[in-house]
Design a protein around this nucleic acid. Structure first.
Lengths: 226, 226
DNA sequence: TGTGTTTATAAACAGCTGTTTAACTTATTG
DNA sequence: CAATAAGTTAAACAGCTGTTTATAAACACA
């Protein structure tokens, strides 16, 4: 008779993990729309119908990839906090260095997460709110506390909140707009010493700004008191 | 017999423009991959084969939309320059306000350009280099001159170049990462008075930083002299 | 008016997509 | 052990996509 088909794979957990990993890579490279389940399943050595079985749909697979990515973020490097000790100014320096090290070195070696995040920002799903709540907001709030300590104000001061956005925006610009920065020069840092130098430059700039604003609440803050 | 088909449209130029306009809208909303030629042509009241005829392919249509977008950028609001008069500090304030007004108000009413640009940043084509050369670089260099005037340095000073990136990154963060800022609060400005208030806050912050760095070249700059 | 060329477009093509179906295999339960 | 449930997977389905083909209509010219 004909040859019997090869024996089936039994390790469901391993297959599921392979699918998640392959999907992350393909979604990162191609984006959600262009990424095809056949490409993902070829890479994962899995059957196309497995996507429906394990994840319900292409959307479900994407959601799971994104959520895994969020959970990974929470396991990463210990964040820099005021409780670490040192002056608030030194803490802010370390915080800035830590963020730049993360986005310019660590993430650059594995662009899957940032590319999935870029896609998510363009077409937010409910996953994004979860990510913001679990990962981004605590991070943001600790920076607020650091800024407030530098400035001798309450963390809920509206200036402190805005300065958080200013500082984060300034730092991640070097990652998000890398195609521009690289062409306008100087190139985006690629080594730890280069990152340290940029971090120092930014920290000096930022601390200069915060120090100068210490005694001068902005018109924004004073108007909000009416 | 059967009804004769309606007469053909003869205005090729009008059809081509309609296609460009519809494509811009659909590409902006759906991204390149998800945008379908049938959706674009339905919107433009044109035949699907017209894309091949006028633009060669879907890619060609996209390229033309992007180049039109770059040319529009060059016709927009007169840039703020030192030659406008006033102190360098006031010029910088106006510059920051102008940028925020542009990205938060004008562009927000027509998100086509920023969304196409986001796509281009993810998958750069040669068009991007053209755009950087013609639009972004002159803009960037004028900001460098303004910063240098505030700081009493040469425009080619490496700190001035980096501060350009810092300032631009900080400002455009409110547009690029709007999904984050809106959820973390306070909401991204949507009215002219709100934009003015944010611009003032940023200008105070930035001028505070530049003033504090005036007498202290950073370690970056001083090391580069070795 | 007739002829050759160009333009515009309906229809078809070829291929790809995510999802569903059906059949088989394996595991579990009574 | 038999029956049932769960898991795996090839094949099929239904629909969509960008591109190509074929042809009518329009244009230009003698």
């Amino acid at each position: 008779m004909l040859n019997s088909p090869p024996s089936r794979e039994h390790d469901a957990e391993a297959r599921r993990e392979r699918l998640l990993k392959a999907a992350a890579t393909v979604f990162a490279k191609d984006g959600f729309e262009k990424a095809s389940l056949r490409a993902i399943c070829l890479k994962a050595k899995a059957n196309v119908a497995a996507v429906k079985y394990y994840f319900g749909s292409k959307d479900g697979l994407y959601r799971e990839v994104f959520l895994s990515s969020c959970q990974d973020s929470m396991k990463e490097d210990a964040p820099v906090t005021l409780a670490d000790g040192g002056t608030p100014e030194d803490t802010l320096r370390r915080w800035i260095h830590h963020l730049l090290d993360h986005v310019l070195l660590k993430r650059a070696k594995n662009p899957v997460k940032s590319q999935i995040m870029a896609h998510e920002m363009r077409e937010p799903t409910p996953c994004l709110n979860e990510f913001i709540k679990l990962v981004v907001r605590p991070f943001h709030e600790e920076l607020q506390r650091i800024i407030a300590a530098v400035m001798g104000r309450r963390a809920a001061d509206e200036d402190c909140i805005l300065y958080c956005h200013h500082i984060i925006g300034l730092c991640i610009h070097y990652d998000h707009c890398r195609v521009f920065v690289d062409r306008l020069g100087p190139p985006v840092p690629k080594t730890a010493p280069e990152v340290q130098r940029l971090a120092d430059n930014i920290a000096d700039f930022v601390l200069g700004a915060l120090t100068s604003r210490r005694a001068s609440p902005s018109k924004t803050a004073s108007r909000s008191k009416k």
